[in-house]
Design a protein around this nucleic acid. Sequence first.
DNA 1: GTGAAAGCGCTAACAA
DNA 2: TTGTTAGCGCTTTCAC
Lengths: 335, 335
Amino acid sequence: MRDVARAAGVSIGTVSKALNNAGSLKQETRERVTEAARSLGFRPNDLAQALHRGQSFTVGLISNDSFGRFTMPILEGLESVLYEERIAVFMCNATDDPERERQHIEQLMGKRVDGLVFTARRADKRPNLGVDLAGLPTVFVFSQSDDPHSFCLLPDDEGGAYLGAAHLITNGRRRIAHVTGPERFEAVQLRRDGCRKALADAGVPIRSNWFLSGEWSESWGRQAVDILFDDPDDVPDGILAGNDQIARGILDALRDRGIDVPGAVGVVGFDNWGVMAEAARPTLTSIDMNLNALGQEAGRRILAMIGGKRFSGVERLPCTLVVRESCGAKSKTTA
Amino acid sequence: MRDVARAAGVSIGTVSKALNNAGSLKQETRERVTEAARSLGFRPNDLAQALHRGQSFTVGLISNDSFGRFTMPILEGLESVLYEERIAVFMCNATDDPERERQHIEQLMGKRVDGLVFTARRADKRPNLGVDLAGLPTVFVFSQSDDPHSFCLLPDDEGGAYLGAAHLITNGRRRIAHVTGPERFEAVQLRRDGCRKALADAGVPIRSNWFLSGEWSESWGRQAVDILFDDPDDVPDGILAGNDQIARGILDALRDRGIDVPGAVGVVGFDNWGVMAEAARPTLTSIDMNLNALGQEAGRRILAMIGGKRFSGVERLPCTLVVRESCGAKSKTTA
DNA sequence: GTGAAAGCGCTAACAA
DNA sequence: TTGTTAGCGCTTTCAC
């Protein structure tokens, strides 16, 4: 900066004003300074600026998902929104270790981040680590905190499952099963509730023995088919899966049994995981949690919080139905 | 810091020394300061420190993979290594847009990152954007630069494919096919070379019409089986797939045809993509590119470069064979 | 063994 | 309209 001032023949304060489009300066001076800066390849030092202004233009993202499949779209959405405001994102992997998480938070606070975003493998409660965040803007995405004062952004699992079940019903299915993941996940419970509700609202009978809970795997999906289709006289004609892997397993097992999809049975997945859904035979209709949008919203909220706003409680963003072939409906996307 | 100095009844310089275990201080003073800092919840400001020292303890990672499946393990490895040295990682998504990439670099340089890591969807050449990195430590992981002076870290695709083909041969296969992705990928060519070499080294005949190039998809894998098994009197007994999706497609198609795997045909995949390989029937033996290790190595190199070392050229890290059921061998992992 | 002070690069308030 | 200057919070050299 000193060099630029010298080259442009002005004071150092003037350079600052010129480069920040601040204060009042003669147009000619402004240009002269800008030109000098450019030709010297001058790049202002954000650290110094941050030190002075007390704002670092950085945000930390702490994940315990080891940066998995769910974290990525969230990060992507978050980054894209923050980038527009010239804020950069620190990525930290806490690998489910509370101590490591604490250290990461310490490190980020040392770096004077303007905000903190927490995310996780699954949207389950996360114990409050005794770190004093000192009023630092914080949002939990796809993740929840113990602390009722904190702000959590989640997909509307219940609504998503409702959409999926309703889609099955719309396409003429009346004997609907639900094959999902481990009971301990809140998402499992919410999705089941959504499914039940859709059936109830449509006057479709609910068969409790067709609501199966297992693992988030293809192999569980296959097993579930063995259970559901054990008695050939009493089989479902529509299945809502708890995720796309389960759905894929279901599809494969039905295929093995020579059961036509979507002819005899309609299947809907959850997650809308591209590679999985597109490669399935038939291609899989699925519920999209819109994680990218969730990440974007997290970004907007953090920005608002940095601007002084406060949020708390849990907010849920809508899921979307992505129609492919496994239900026999015309292909489209609906909310 | 001023507050700590006051509380401990010492000068501000003494606080700095005490907290950094630097200089020579009476043990008692050191403790008194440390205690005061703790009780005041004092956290040193890294920005000020960085400003003074000219080192920010940050590194930028620029991806054009939209943070996809390959970026994640790399990021994970990188972050874990850098974290040990108290260096935090900025994540930037360039989404294949050179202009955006340039802006990200500008932003990161403004933040005075100590190093830059580039990564990409696939290990293909990346044009040099005309940004002057001013000698900033830079490494390309799973990605290459035009500039011969730059340093690139890649998986040994050729060696990996060699491993896979050799494994087929070891397990008694002599009629080996290779089904891979689009010709334009360097990885496709390297893997094919590796496959060829393994066959040649073992004196196994190479059937050019069994070397098939298509897409990186399950559906292409299925199609390829239709081609390879068209003439029932002349079919392969071992297939090396270019990636796990293709392998999965192959497995499904063979299953549909009632061809036993690994009995009649052995299949080896590439990528060792957990969800894909584990869910396959039979589970898929695959080549692992060890991307996490690649990320770790990138971290170590960046650290060395920050320490003054220079590297250039292309280095390739070995792939690993992960044995599951699709080849009929006992389960194990070998380099 | 400890304190004082200069300075990292920048901004903002105040003078000129 | 422009220059001067006092810090932002820290490290480090040099006195004491």
